[in-house]
């Protein structure tokens, strides 16, 4: 379970004058599920594209362990890029021949009731996403990279998508890496959370651990300075203080009602912190 399958070293990507990814260092383990989150424009999609080798870095590298060939990497970008003028069938045949798939499983296609002769450009976003996913599933991928598309598709298809991913994890121990900043139903799939800001990872925690490291205090009054508060949200009735890093001693020292947070709230707190730190250019 704890076998390393990818090593990202000193990954740097520049576009024009802007450094989109800045000297990133991270390791990925076999079978782990990771969510990469952060503000818009923090570089998440760029990082995912580097993992897919669709963007090649200016410095640094993404090294996969030898048993991972490119055929075993599945990538769905936020563009859901495919050859639009191909028909559904042509797309399947093409993908199968390129990735050397002999047994394409048409279950998903059939569930969606897609016509084999319709052109890919006529598919809705949701149909397209699941179609692309079914192509990738037939690759029996070791690594699945998914960019922010989950919440673009309708809830019914979304559930199908998630179930497919769950199947993938349990059957092939696929490493799943998703870029998202909305969580809802996918909350409990990722075991690891990477928070990206300004081209760098500023947090890398296990989602379980996160639950214990960050808490919230809701109070009308100000809380003591010693309590490490990374973000504060005000409303007319009360203030929410997000405490990170939370330690059990704090409960004894400063007795308050420390509330537990969902992943969405945790991320919101961190991102809020980034906005707070941001200077006006």
């Amino acid at each position: 379970m704890n076998k390393q399958i990818a090593e990202v070293e000193k990954l740097t990507v520049r576009i024009g004058k802007k450094t989109v990814l800045n000297d990133i260092q991270v390791q990925l383990q076999k079978g782990e599920s990771v969510v990469i989150t952060g503000r818009n424009g923090s570089g998440k999609s760029t990082f995912l594209r580097c993992l897919a080798e669709v963007i090649l870095p200016d410095q640094g590298s993404v090294e996969y362990s030898p048993e991972i060939s490119r055929e075993k990497i599945g990538f769905i970008s936020d563009q859901i890029s495919l050859f639009e003028n191909f028909t559904v069938k042509q797309g399947i045949d093409f993908h199968s021949s390129v990735f050397r798939i002999t047994d394409f499983d048409p279950t998903l296609i059939n569930e969606l009731k897609l016509n084999l002769n319709q052109k890919i450009k006529t598919l809705s976003a949701g149909e397209r996403t699941l179609y692309h996913l079914s192509l990738i599933l037939s690759q029996k991928p070791q690594i699945l990279l998914v960019d922010e598309i989950i919440h673009v598709i309708d809830p019914f298809l979304r559930e199908k998508f998630l179930e497919a991913i769950i199947d993938l994890i349990s059957q092939l121990q696929t490493t799943v890496i998703m870029v998202n900043h909305t969580f809802s139903e996918i909350e409990k799939i990722p075991e690891r959370v990477l928070l990206m800001e300004n081209g760098q990872f500023i947090m890398d925690e296990k989602s379980e651990a996160l639950g214990t490291k960050i808490k919230k205090i809701v109070s009308e009054k100000k809380i003591p300075e010693e309590i490490p508060c990374i973000f504060r949200k005000e409303s007319s009735f009360y203030q929410e203080y997000f405490i990170y890093p939370f330690k059990e001693e704090l409960r004894k020292k400063f007795p308050h009602d420390y509330k537990d947070l969902s992943l969405t709230e945790i991320i919101k707190a961190f991102i809020g912190d980034q906005y707070a730190k941001k200077r006006i250019p």
């Binding site: 563009q79 495919l82 050859f83 639009e84 003028n85 191909f86």
Partner: peptide, 8 residues
Amino acid sequence: QGGMEYLI
């Protein structure tokens, strides 16, 4: 066809 990314 919007397939550059797919191609790569």
